[in-house]
Simulated assay, not measured.
Amino acid sequence: GTTILTMMIPWFDFDLIIHRKYDEIEIEFPAFFEFRDVVEDWNKNGLYVIDHLDLFKRFPDAKSFKENFSAYFEKNYHAIAQQNGLEDPRIGFKKTQW
C-alpha cells in the first residue's frame, strides 16, 4: 500500500525483460545494487543482460548506488522515460496531488 512516507521518498524499480524463443517475460522489482551480482553471474553463464541505462557503470559500487541512484532518477526520470518508452506516473502524481 501507499503511505505518506512512501509518497515522499522516491522509489524506483528495475524492469527486466526476458526474451525467450517465442515470447517475453517482464519482471519488475525494487532497485537494489546487489542485483549486479545476479547480472554478472548470468553473463558468465551465457544469459546476457543489457543494461540500457549503464546503471552499473554510472553507480559502480554499493556506496555510490545508495547515495546517488535515487537522486539521479528523481532528477532525470522524465527524460529517461520519454527516451525509453517507460511509464511516467510521476507526472500524473505531481499534477494531481500537489
Rank of each mutant, 00 (worst) to 15 (best):
L53E: 04
R36Y: 11
D54A: 10
Y48M: 09
K75F: 03
H78G: 03
E67N: 12
L86M: 09
I9N: 03
L16Y: 12
W11M: 10
A31E: 02
V39D: 06
A71C: 05
T6K: 08
L16W: 08
T3N: 08
K63Q: 13
M8T: 04
F93H: 10
G92A: 08
Y22G: 10
F65G: 01
D41H: 10
H52R: 14
D37P: 15
L16C: 12
I25E: 10
F59V: 04
I50P: 02
K57H: 06
I80H: 00
Y22R: 13
H52P: 04
K57P: 07
E67L: 10
R90G: 00
H52Q: 11
S70Q: 06
D15E: 08
F56T: 01
Q97F: 08
Q83L: 06
A31N: 02
E28P: 13
W98P: 15
T96E: 15
I27E: 15
R58I: 07
D51Q: 06
G92P: 01
A71L: 14
N84W: 02
G92V: 01
M7S: 12
T96A: 14
K63R: 10
L5K: 12
K75L: 09
S64P: 12
Y77H: 01
S70Y: 13
D54E: 13
K94P: 04
N68R: 11
V49L: 13
I25C: 14
L86N: 03
P89R: 04
I25P: 08
F32P: 03
D23T: 09
D41N: 10
F73E: 00
Q97K: 14
M8D: 06
K44Y: 11
F12E: 01
W11H: 11
K44T: 08
N68M: 08
I27R: 15
G92D: 03
G46M: 02
L47R: 08
E87W: 04
P30I: 00
A71N: 09
I9F: 03
I17N: 05
Q82W: 00
T96V: 07
N76M: 00
G46A: 06
F35I: 03
K66H: 14
R36P: 07
Q83F: 03
L86P: 04
Q82R: 05
D54C: 12
M8W: 13
T6Q: 10
E24F: 11
I9P: 01
